[in-house]
Amino acid sequence: MIEELLPDAVACAEAFDDPADAVLFAEEEALIAKAVDKRRREFTTARHCARQAMAKLGLPPAAVLPGERGAPQWPAGVVGTMTHCAGYRAAALALDTEVASVGIDAEPHDVLPDGVLKAIAVPAELAWLPSVSAAHPDVCWDRLLFSAKESVYKTWFPLTRKWLGFEDASVTVDPVGGTFQARLLVPGPFVAGAELTGFTGRWMVRDGLILTAISV
């Protein structure tokens, strides 16, 4: 599903369960030696997806270790992102000669827990949510907003190596076209000589999941 949201230059792989043949490199195994089963399964399968995406790019399998702020460290010349939630894991990778950065997120299609929306939404987002929710009640727009902001951060961080808070971007959603716009409320990174003032992403709701994705 996730490949439907990204350009052809991005290699994607996803899983809806945890395959028995998914294995880790020794250095990855060391990171989760004491992890609970749930964490072990999502960690392992996400990296299994990442190595499938590497193969699609013609690259050999490689360990994916967490780096600064937990961001995955990819092989030289590769940009990428991973996500996981209950019943879904995915990775999306590209060559840095084709794509500057990519971010994906998956969430269960359900309303956010109490209190989360106020913690992640800026006033402009709180203003459009009621009308969109009333017009299209079949989508959990608060959760979609959260997912979009997660994809924004995953795209932003490799370009800047800086933190981006939920309050630092304002998202608007096209409820019919399956796209969203994220306007940065802080100075943006420079890509190909031009400053980015925001990101354009795509979203879908299918099979009990919300998926969002951005590529630059």
Score class of each variant (00 low, 15 high):
Val64Thr: 13
Gly77Pro: 02
Ala53Asn: 09
Ala76Glu: 15
Glu4Lys: 13
Arg40Ser: 11
Gly70Ile: 11
Gln52Met: 14
Gln52His: 06
Gly80Phe: 05
Ala35His: 07
Glu14Lys: 02
Gln52Glu: 15
Ala63Asp: 04
Leu65Val: 12
Leu6Glu: 03
Lys56Leu: 15
Pro61Lys: 09
Ala62Ser: 15
Glu28Tyr: 11
Val10His: 04
Met54Gln: 13
Glu28Ile: 03
Asp21Leu: 05
Gly77Val: 09
Ala46Gly: 15
Leu31His: 04
Ala46Trp: 04
Ala26Arg: 11
Ala33Tyr: 00
Leu24Lys: 01
Glu68Asp: 15
Glu68Arg: 14
Leu6Lys: 02
Ala76Tyr: 00
Asp21Val: 03
Lys34Thr: 14
Leu24Ile: 03
Val10Thr: 04
Ala20Tyr: 00
Phe16Asn: 06
Glu29Leu: 12
Arg41His: 12
Glu14Ala: 14
Pro72Ala: 07
Cys49Met: 12
Phe25Ala: 05
Glu4Thr: 14
Ala11Lys: 02
Glu42Val: 13
Gly70His: 04
Pro7Asp: 11
Leu5His: 09
Val64Asn: 04
Pro75Lys: 07
Val78Cys: 11
Ala11Tyr: 01
Pro7Ser: 11
Ala35Arg: 08
Arg69Glu: 13
Glu14Leu: 08
Ala33Met: 05
Ala62Gly: 06
Ala30Pro: 01
Lys56Phe: 02
Glu68Cys: 10
Ala35Gln: 13
Thr45Pro: 07
Leu65Met: 13
Glu3Ile: 00
Arg51Leu: 11
Leu31Phe: 05
Ala15Thr: 12
Glu42Gln: 14
Val64Arg: 04
Pro61Asn: 10
Glu14Pro: 04
Lys34Arg: 15
Met54His: 09
Glu28Gln: 09
Ala22Asp: 05
Glu68His: 07
Lys56Pro: 00
Leu57Arg: 10
Arg39Asp: 07
Gly80Gln: 03
Pro19Phe: 11
Lys38Arg: 15
Thr44Arg: 13
Ala26Tyr: 01
Leu65Lys: 06
Val36Pro: 01
Pro66His: 09
Glu4Arg: 15
Ala9Glu: 15
Thr45Val: 15
Ala15Asn: 04
Gly58His: 10
Pro61Ala: 13
Pro61Thr: 08
Thr45Asn: 10
Pro19Asp: 09
Ala26Lys: 08
Pro66Lys: 08
Phe25Leu: 02
Phe43Ser: 01
Glu14Gly: 02
Pro66Arg: 05
Ala13Phe: 06
Thr45Ala: 10
Pro7Lys: 07
Phe25Arg: 02
Pro66Ser: 05
Ala63Lys: 04
Ala46Glu: 02
Glu29Ala: 15
Arg41Val: 01
Ala33Leu: 11
Ala76Asn: 12
Pro19Cys: 13
Leu5Phe: 06
Val79Met: 01
Met54Glu: 08
Met54Ala: 09
Ile32Arg: 07
